[in-house]
Amino acid sequence: ATNIVGKVKWYNSTKNFGFIEQDNGGKDVFVHKSAVDAAGLHSLEEGQDVIFDLEEKQGKAYAVNLRIK
Rank of each mutant, 00 (worst) to 15 (best):
D23E: 09
K9I: 07
A63L: 03
D28P: 07
D53A: 04
S13I: 10
L54D: 01
R67V: 07
E55C: 04
E55G: 10
A63C: 04
E21V: 08
T14K: 14
V5D: 08
I51Q: 09
D53E: 05
G25W: 12
F52W: 02
V8I: 14
A63S: 05
G40T: 04
K57V: 11
R67K: 10
Q48D: 14
K57G: 14
N3Y: 11
D49R: 10
G47V: 03
L44Q: 01
Y62W: 15
A38H: 10
A39V: 06
V5H: 15
A1Y: 12
D49F: 10
T2R: 06
A61P: 11
W10E: 02
A61S: 07
A39G: 09
V29S: 05
S34I: 15
G18I: 01
F19H: 02
S43M: 14
K27P: 13
G25F: 13
V8Q: 01
A63N: 00
L66Y: 00
A63M: 02
V29M: 04
N12L: 07
F19M: 06
D28A: 10
F52G: 01
G26P: 08
Q22G: 11
K9A: 06
E45W: 11
S13Q: 10
D23Q: 13
Q48A: 07
G6I: 01
K57I: 15
N24W: 15
D53T: 05
N12V: 10
G6S: 02
D28S: 06
L44H: 01
K15W: 14
I51P: 00
F17V: 03
T14H: 14
K7G: 02
D53F: 03
G40Q: 12
G47F: 06
A38T: 13
R67W: 07
L54C: 04
F19T: 02
K33I: 05
V5K: 10
K27E: 07
D28R: 04
V8T: 03
K27V: 10
D37E: 07
Q48L: 09
H32L: 04
T14G: 08
Q58N: 09
K15Y: 13
K33S: 10
S13C: 05
T2G: 07
K57W: 12
E21Q: 11
N24F: 12
K9E: 01
G59W: 10
G18Y: 02
L44Y: 02
I20G: 00
E45T: 11
K57L: 08
V50A: 05
Y62K: 07
A39K: 05
T2W: 09
G25H: 12
Q58L: 09
A1W: 07
Y62V: 06
V36N: 02
A38V: 08
G40I: 03
N16Y: 14
L41W: 14
Q22F: 12
A61Y: 09
D53Q: 04
I20R: 00
Q22P: 09
D28E: 11
L54T: 09
V64E: 15
D37M: 07
Q22Y: 14
E56Q: 10
F17I: 05
T14A: 10
S43H: 12
L54W: 06
N24I: 13
Y62N: 13
N16E: 10
S34K: 12
A63F: 01
V36G: 02
V64G: 06
G26E: 14
S13D: 10
D23H: 10
L54I: 09
S34G: 11
I51L: 13
Q22S: 07
G25Q: 15
I4N: 08
T2D: 10
G6Y: 01
E55Q: 08
K33Y: 10
S43Q: 12
G18H: 01
A38R: 12
V8H: 00
N24L: 07
F30W: 05
D28N: 07
D37S: 14
I20V: 07
N12F: 08
A39L: 11
E56V: 13
K57M: 10
E55S: 15
V64R: 09
D37A: 10
N16G: 15
K27F: 14
W10M: 12
T2N: 15
L44A: 02
D28H: 15
N16F: 11
R67I: 10
K9V: 05
I68N: 13
A1L: 13
A61V: 14
Q22A: 15
G26R: 15
N12M: 09
L44C: 02
D28K: 04
A61L: 15
K60A: 11
V31D: 00
N24E: 06
N65F: 15
I4T: 06
Q48P: 02
S34V: 14
S34R: 12
D49N: 12
G25Y: 08
F17W: 07
E45G: 14
F52R: 00
E56A: 11
K9Y: 02
Y11D: 00
S34W: 10
Q48E: 11
Y11H: 01
E21I: 13
Q58V: 12
L41Q: 09
N3D: 13
G25N: 10
V31M: 06
G47M: 06
Y62I: 06
A1N: 11
W10P: 00
T2S: 09
A38D: 08
I20D: 00
G6V: 00
G47P: 02
N24Q: 11
I4S: 10
I68M: 10
D28M: 14
Q48I: 10
S13T: 07
S34F: 11
I51A: 09
A63R: 00
H42D: 14
Q48C: 05
Y11A: 01
A63V: 10
H32E: 03
L66C: 02
L54V: 09
V50P: 00
E21G: 15
E46G: 10
Q58C: 05
V36Q: 02
E21C: 05
G59C: 04
N24R: 07
Y11G: 01
R67S: 11
G59V: 06
G25V: 11
H32M: 05
V29P: 01
T2F: 08
G25D: 12
F19S: 02
I51V: 10
E45I: 12
V29I: 10
I4K: 09
G40R: 08
L44M: 06
T2L: 14
A1Q: 08
E45D: 12
E56F: 12
H32G: 13
Y11M: 03
I4Q: 09
S13A: 10
F30Y: 08
V64Y: 06
V5Y: 14
A39N: 05
Y11E: 01
L54H: 08
V5A: 11
E21H: 15
K57P: 06
N12Y: 10
D49C: 05
G59R: 13
K60Q: 11
K60V: 11
G47Q: 10
N3S: 06
R67A: 06
L44D: 01
E56N: 09
D37N: 09
K15M: 12
Y11I: 03
T2P: 15
V36F: 05
H32K: 03
D23A: 14
T2Y: 12
S34Q: 12
I20W: 00
K57H: 10
E21P: 01
A63E: 00
A39H: 03
V36K: 04
N12S: 09
A38S: 10
N12T: 07
K57S: 08
F19K: 03
L54R: 15
S43F: 11
I4E: 15
G26D: 07
S43D: 15
D23F: 10
W10G: 02
E21D: 14
L66M: 06
